[in-house]
Simulated scan of single mutants.
Amino acid sequence: MYSKAETSKIRKDFWTAFGLYMKPVPNAEGRKTQWQNYKTGVKDIYFRMRAERNFASIGIEITHNDAELQQLYYEQLLEFKKILESETNEIWKWEMHVHDDHNRIISRVQKVAHGLNVMDQNDWPAIISFLKPRIIALDTFWNNMKPAFEEL
Rank of each mutant, 00 (worst) to 15 (best):
K4D: 11
A5W: 03
A5K: 15
E6W: 02
T7Q: 10
T7E: 12
T7P: 00
S8L: 02
R11L: 08
R11C: 03
D13L: 02
W15R: 04
W15A: 11
A17N: 05
F18T: 06
F18G: 10
Y21V: 08
K23F: 14
P24K: 08
P24N: 11
P26H: 10
N27R: 07
N27P: 10
N27M: 11
N27H: 10
A28Q: 07
E29Q: 13
G30V: 00
G30H: 10
G30F: 04
K32C: 03
K32N: 11
T33D: 07
Q34W: 03
W35H: 12
W35A: 13
Q36E: 15
Q36D: 12
N37T: 03
Y38A: 09
V42P: 08
V42T: 05
V42K: 08
K43N: 13
D44P: 00
Y46T: 05
F47W: 03
M49H: 07
F55M: 10
F55W: 09
S57P: 01
I58Y: 09
G59V: 02
G59M: 04
I60Q: 00
E61F: 09
I62K: 01
I62A: 01
I62Y: 03
H64R: 06
A67H: 08
A67S: 13
Q71F: 00
L72V: 04
L72M: 07
Y73C: 05
Y74T: 02
E75F: 06
E75D: 15
Q76E: 06
L77D: 09
L78G: 02
I83Y: 11
L84Q: 09
E85N: 09
S86R: 09
E87I: 00
E87N: 07
E87Q: 13
W92V: 04
W92P: 06
E95D: 15
M96F: 01
M96R: 14
H97R: 08
V98L: 07
H99A: 10
H102F: 14
H102G: 06
H102Q: 15
R104T: 00
R104F: 14
I105G: 07
S107R: 01
R108A: 01
K111I: 02
A113T: 03
H114V: 00
H114G: 05
G115P: 03
L116P: 12
L116A: 10
L116R: 03
N117Q: 06
N117F: 04
V118H: 02
V118D: 05
D120Q: 14
D120P: 01
Q121F: 02
N122G: 09
N122Y: 11
D123A: 11
D123V: 05
W124S: 09
W124T: 06
P125I: 11
A126I: 02
F130I: 12
F130R: 09
F130W: 09
L131W: 08
K132V: 02
K132M: 14
P133I: 05
R134Y: 05
R134G: 13
R134C: 11
I135K: 04
I135S: 09
I136T: 12
I136E: 12
